[in-house]
Amino acid sequence: MPNFQEKALVQAHEQLAPDIFRLTVHSPQIAQASAPGQFVMIKSSNTSDPLLRRPFSIHDVTSGGMLHLLYKVIGKGTRCLQNLSPGEQTDLIGPLGHGFQFSVQEPACLLGGGMGIAPLLYLAKSLQNVSSPRQDHQILLGARTSVELAPLVDDFQQLGYTVQAATDDGSLGHHGFVSELLEEVLPSVRTVYVCGPHPLMAAIARQCQAADVPCQVSLETHMACGLGACLGCTIYAPDKSYRHVCKHGPVFDANEVLWTL
């Protein structure tokens, strides 16, 4: 698989909610080679603290070699990233890892929680190019509150999708967890793609297994390189052997992951 290290110029840096940002960079080589579910490693500062690159799933790819990342300011790395302004240069390595298998079974359900929504936009766009009419796909998105969720719901609606939303505080859509929306749509879909907090993905994986619907999950871990060299991004497979998120993933069949120890 080809990957590149690219100096990328920041084109836009949009604030979607108090702590949520969308970064658009001109990164033609990585954009051209990428597939939904893959990720990039980005150096968020030129100093040695924070030292390591941070992994971000590819949120979207648009014409002219534009790569979009969606992130929430959580720690040292994302606080540095937040300071990038249009015209400044950043440094990316990608595309990395194995993305979603999306040539398989239609129609699909795309289920995202919080920043886990990021890779699903690129996936939703790519699904438009395969056979099912887009109305058949189910998009279920959840977040804490409307302020954080509404701008993301909007992105999917602009692609022509109908979105079901869920918020923890009931300020948009269903009052509760996005996983609670799945039960109803599960009989009508043949694949579920999910990305979000670990407990959410574990719950969805259980539901899909019970209904015998294939489920793909996009996992997140700490990693130092993203290239399969540091061996730091370990998860458990069901037989308690290890898998590395950067190489075997970040997208896994839900049955390849041990959800509870």
Partner: peptide, 11 residues
């Protein structure tokens, strides 16, 4: 060798 359980690295 399978290595250690996660988490294995921290900045």
């Amino acid at each position: 060798r399978p290595g250690n359980p996660p988490p294995r690295i921290v900045e």
